[in-house]
Computed example of a mutant assay.
Amino acid sequence: MRGDLERANLVLPSIPKEHHNSVARFLESRGMMEDALEVATDPDYRFELAIQLGKLDIAQEIAMLAQSESKWKQLGELAMSTGKLEMAEECLKQANDLSGLLLLYSSLGDAEGITQLASLAKEHGKNNVAFLCLFMLGKLEDCLQLLVESNRIPEAALMARSYLPSKASEIVALWRKDLNKINPKAAESLADPEEYPNLFEDWQIALAVESRVAETRGNYPPAAEYVQHSDRSVASLVESFRNMQVNEEEPLVNGGLDHEVPEQNEDEVQEECKDEIQVVEHDDGHEEAVVVDADSTDGAVLMNSKEVEEEEWGTNDEGNPS
């Protein structure tokens, strides 16, 4: 035990088995974890050592013999964190860890697994997990039915208003009937969208959106395609549908964003400048640039600022005011 492992292995068979766990703990204290695992006989202790060493196969064998949900759950979480997903699924099933299975299946985009989990969750009375499974699968009608069966009728009405407006009147009728047992006046105050559509904003648009997206609710793209869908707009379907209608109704008019102004190249600009600016030679021999009115039909010449000033004030030949 003082470093002579060969001699220790020779002595070990002579030690009674009831003392093997003590020897294993001594080996563990010396950092000899693998040797401790071989010597230990207590299943719980061996399971802990196997988990610490990452020997999941040994831990799985021990868990199968012990049939302990806590061991299965601990092993399942470790298997998931190390990427052993098949083992993780088996362990989470053995542990009845429905939340862990939901995390696993949703991460993998496993629609079949989520479908099975929804049924399993309903059998175990885990309505929260069952609802999430059905919602991710796009089975909104089943979500409403689950809420009604769970006596969550107000929540069902709100969900129908948001996702299944065609079912809203049906759920409101159930809500009125249930609420009438407690508060008849409050039950009468509940508005039915079919009776008072003016009280529900964009009601007709919501009905149109529901019928349009109903066909796509059963499409389950694989999780590997997440990057292709991550940049999709976060705008609501009602808002997108409303904007689409506005774009279809408004025709393109002049002056809009699509109205293009032809660009002129540098040669054309210089040519126009030449046409507008001309050089005039005076009798005394000096030259002066003047601007020609390009829009004028009679070729009128605009005087420069000096000429305008002289004409306005009136000057004599010597430059003095007259």
Rank of each mutant, 00 (worst) to 15 (best):
E69L: 12
C143S: 02
A156M: 08
W313S: 02
L302V: 09
Q204I: 06
E215L: 05
P13R: 04
Y226D: 07
I15G: 00
D142F: 02
H259Q: 14
Y163R: 04
P251S: 11
F47S: 01
L237F: 14
S106C: 07
E170I: 14
D202V: 03
G83D: 07
E250Y: 13
Q94I: 03
S236N: 04
G54Y: 07
A8W: 03
N183I: 11
R212I: 00
H19T: 02
A160L: 06
F241N: 08
E6W: 10
M1V: 11
T82C: 06
D192V: 00
S107T: 13
K93N: 02
A36M: 08
C143D: 06
R2P: 01
E123G: 06
Q204C: 06
P154S: 04
E188P: 05
V261A: 11
L108M: 15
N180H: 15
Q204A: 11
Q74M: 06
C133Q: 05
W72C: 06
N151G: 03
L75S: 00
M303N: 06
L174N: 12
S99R: 14
D44N: 12
R7D: 11
K17D: 01
E310Y: 08
L140P: 01
E155Q: 10
D57P: 05
L98H: 04
W313L: 12
K73Q: 01
V269D: 09
F200L: 07
E225A: 03
H286P: 07
E250H: 11
A59K: 04
N128P: 01
D317T: 13
I15T: 05
P184F: 11
L302N: 07
Q74S: 10
A223Y: 05
G100Y: 00
L190G: 02
E318K: 14
F26E: 04
L75C: 02
K122V: 05
I182E: 12
H286L: 15
G100T: 02
N198S: 12
D110I: 10
F47Y: 15
M33V: 01
S68R: 08
L146E: 03
G314C: 08
L134C: 04
L10H: 10
L101Y: 00
G138Y: 03
T115G: 08
S166P: 03
W203Y: 15
E89S: 03
E215I: 10
L27V: 08
V209Q: 06
E155P: 00
G76I: 03
C273W: 13
D44W: 07
S322I: 15
I153S: 05
A160M: 07
A214G: 05
S240N: 10
L101C: 04
D192A: 09
D97S: 02
P184V: 10
M159W: 00
E123I: 05
E312V: 12
S22V: 10
F135K: 10
E248H: 15
Q74H: 09
N128A: 13
V301Y: 06
V23Q: 08
W203A: 04
L237I: 04
T297Y: 03
P251G: 05
N128E: 12
I153W: 08
H259V: 10
N198H: 09
A168W: 06
E89L: 00
E188N: 11
M64L: 15
G319C: 13
K181R: 12
E309I: 02
E6V: 13
E112G: 10
G109P: 02
H259W: 14
S305A: 09
S29P: 01
Q204F: 11
K274W: 12
V280F: 15
E312H: 11
V301T: 08
G256V: 10
I62N: 04
K55S: 03
S14N: 04
E288A: 14
V172A: 09
